[in-house]
Computed example of a mutant assay.
Amino acid sequence: MSKFRIAMALVMSIFLSVSVILPAAAARWYNPDTNTFEERAVAQQRNRGGSPIKKQIVDYQTSYKPGTIVIETSERRLYLVLEGGKAMKYGIGVGRDGFRWSGTHRISRKAEWPGWTPPPAMRKRVPDLPAYMPGGPENPLGARALYIGSTLYRVHGTSEPWSIGQAVSSGCIRLTNDDVMDLYDRVQVGAQIVVKH
């Protein structure tokens, strides 16, 4: 009987150690700006006020006409071409390895607080995703979405500002909710969108 109790105590000790260590590890996030791992809660608190990459008007010489969206995936920036050789530059989150893409399309639709239907391939990868999620603050598409042609991809908001500047999505381009609302008001349906690697 005492061997059984010792064995059970050992099993419980291992179980408790794992249950304490795993959540702590899951709560850590690699910050490429500081080249260190940090607590996700710390990163979220630090970035609660908005994007870690502030939008700004910059010089931008291009042959694209004003109103065009140019996404520089490798730079993790979105440029909205303005008049006079300028652009509004936003920080973005992009597709992780294996989910990046490029091409030229048009904005086919705009939506405020859009609902989300995860595509079948995503539901296969992540089986616990709901078949549909109504729009709202907890929805992964955030406050606004700009639909890209007939693709499955969107430029959309996020409630996770720490993800801006990161390669974390399944191909969509994400901005903070504040930035996507600003972009949404500036862009028309039919605007050209150019996604570059």
Rank of each mutant, 00 (worst) to 15 (best):
E38Q: 14
S17V: 14
K54M: 05
E38S: 12
N35W: 06
I107G: 02
E75M: 02
W116S: 07
L22W: 11
Y132N: 04
P119F: 08
D59I: 07
L129R: 10
G103L: 11
I107T: 06
E112W: 01
R125S: 14
G93C: 05
V81M: 00
V58W: 09
D97E: 13
P114E: 05
I53Y: 03
L141C: 10
K89I: 00
R77N: 03
H105F: 15
P23H: 13
T73Q: 12
E138V: 08
G103A: 11
P114I: 08
I71Q: 06
G50D: 02
G142F: 00
N139C: 12
I14P: 01
V81C: 06
A87M: 00
P23G: 11
P66I: 00
P66T: 03
P119G: 11
E138T: 13
Q44D: 14
K65C: 00
V20H: 04
H105E: 13
A9W: 05
G103E: 10
T68E: 10
L10I: 14
P119R: 13
L141Y: 07
P127L: 11
P120I: 09
P114Y: 11
P137C: 02
P120G: 04
R48I: 08
T68G: 00
L22F: 09
A43Q: 08
E138Q: 15
R48C: 01
A25D: 05
